[in-house]
Design a protein around this nucleic acid. Structure first.
Ligand code: SF4
Ligand code: SF4
Lengths: 169, 169
DNA sequence: TCTTTATCGGATAACTTTGTCCTAATATCC
DNA sequence: GGATATTAGGACAAAGTTATCCGATAAAGA
C-alpha cells in the first residue's frame, strides 16, 4: 500500500512531531533510532523540505523540524512525493477508464478500497498519528517506533526478499 | 495493489476462460490481443502451469487451457505466485507485530482494507470475473479486455515512468 | 523420419526502487 | 577567521521488477 519510502517518511515525521516543538532533530539520530538507513532518510527529509512539510537548518545545532503544526499536515502531504496517487484512480486491471457502469466483480472492491484510502490520506493528520504515540509514551517508557534489541527493522527488511520469482524455479 | 505481473495473469486467465472449454490458446495470441509483452506473458503462464492453474500442450495445435473449471480457480490461486501475501499481514508502518490492542489511527483502516482484500482473494473465482465479461460480450461486439486502436496497453505503461524521484530534482 | 509449430527455460537487458558514499554549502562555536 | 557540525545534493551501487531473446524440447502432421 505504502512504498518503503513512504513508510520511512511517516515514521520519521511521527518521531519528529513527538519532540518538543521547535526542537531540531538530526537526520542521523532519526535514522539510528528508527532503524532507517541514514543517508536514504536524508534524501526523504530533503524532499519533504522541498514540499514545505519540514524546515531544515544547516550547521551546528541544526536539523529538521516541522514547517507547521502537526494538525495541519495531512497524511497526503507526507506521502505525495513518494506515491503515484493518480494510479489509484485507475482500473485495477489496467483498463483505460474504470466506471461504475458495467462493473466487474472486482470493481466494487477496488472502488471501496481506494475511496477509503484517499479519504484516509485527506483526513488523517500527523497529529492524529502522534496522539496515539504520546498516549503510549505515557504508560510505557519505550517509544513504539523505536527499535528494541537487535535492529529488528533491518532484519525484517532482509527477510522480505524471499519472494517467489516469475521465470525461475 | 496488484503487481503488473498479477494484473497480466488475471487478464490472461479471463481471456482464456472465455474461450470454448478445452480450446488451446496460444501465448503469442494472448499477448498480441491483450497488449501484454508476449515473452513475459509466456513466463507468467508457465508459472501458472506449475501451480496447476493452467495446463499446457507443446507442439502443433498446442497452447494453454485451464487445468480445472473457472469456478474452481480462486483469485488467490492466480496471484499467489506473484504477490507476497504474507506482507499484508504485517503492520503498514513496519512494526514487527500489528495488534488491535493499542492501535494507531491507521490501524483500523489497514485492518479493514486487508481483511477485504484477502476475502476478495479467497471468495472471488475466475468464473465470477468472466461472468461479467460474457454478459458484456453479448451486448457489445468488442471484448472489454481487448485492446482497441493503437496499443493502449503499451502506451499507458510507458507513461507510468513519469514518477517523481526521491533524490533528484 | 522430417518439418513445422509451440511451450520450456535459461541468459540477459532495461527500468525502478532502495541504499551508500563523497563533496559542497552553510551555520555555530571558539 | 578557523574548526566543527550538519544539511544539500550529485554520483553511484545493489536489489527488485519487468521485459526481451534464443536455443532446447516436445508434439503433430506430412
Ligand atoms: S469494472 Fe473491473 S475491469 Fe472494468 S474498469 Fe472497473 S475495475 Fe477495471
Ligand atoms: S497500530 Fe498502527 S503502527 Fe501500530 S502496528 Fe497497527 S498499523 Fe502499525
Amino acid at each position: 500500500m505504502f512504498s518503503q519510502t513512504s513508510e520511512y517518511a511517516i515514521r520519521a515525521l511521527i518521531e519528529i512531531a513527538t519532540r518538543p516543538e521547535g526542537e531540531h532533530v538530526l537526520s542521523s539520530e532519526l535514522g539510528e533510532s528508527l532503524g532507517i538507513p541514514q543517508h536514504y532518510l536524508s534524501k526523504i527529509l530533503q524532499q519533504l523540505v522541498r514540499t514545505r512539510v519540514l524546515k531544515s537548518v544547516r550547521g551546528r545545532s541544526g536539523g529538521f523540524r516541522l514547517a507547521r503544526s502537526a494538525a495541519d499536515i495531512r497524511l497526503r502531504d507526507i506521502v505525495e512525493p513518494f506515491e503515484d496517487l493518480k494510479k489509484c484512480e485507475e482500473c485495477i486491471l489496467g483498463q483505460p477508464v474504470c466506471s461504475d457502469a458495467g462493473a466487474c466483480p472486482l470493481h466494487d472492491f477496488w472502488g471501496d478500497v481506494r475511496e477509503r484510502y484517499v479519504n484516509e490520506l485527506e483526513t488523517k493528520s500527523l497529529a492524529d498519528l502522534t496522539d496515539y504515540q504520546l498516549k503510549k509514551l505515557g504508560s510505557m517508557n519505550a517509544g513504539l517506533f523505536k527499535r528494541v534489541g537487535s535492529v529488528p527493522g533491518k532484519e525484517s527488511l532482509k527477510q522480505k526478499s524471499k519472494r517467489k520469482k516469475v521465470g525461475t524455479k
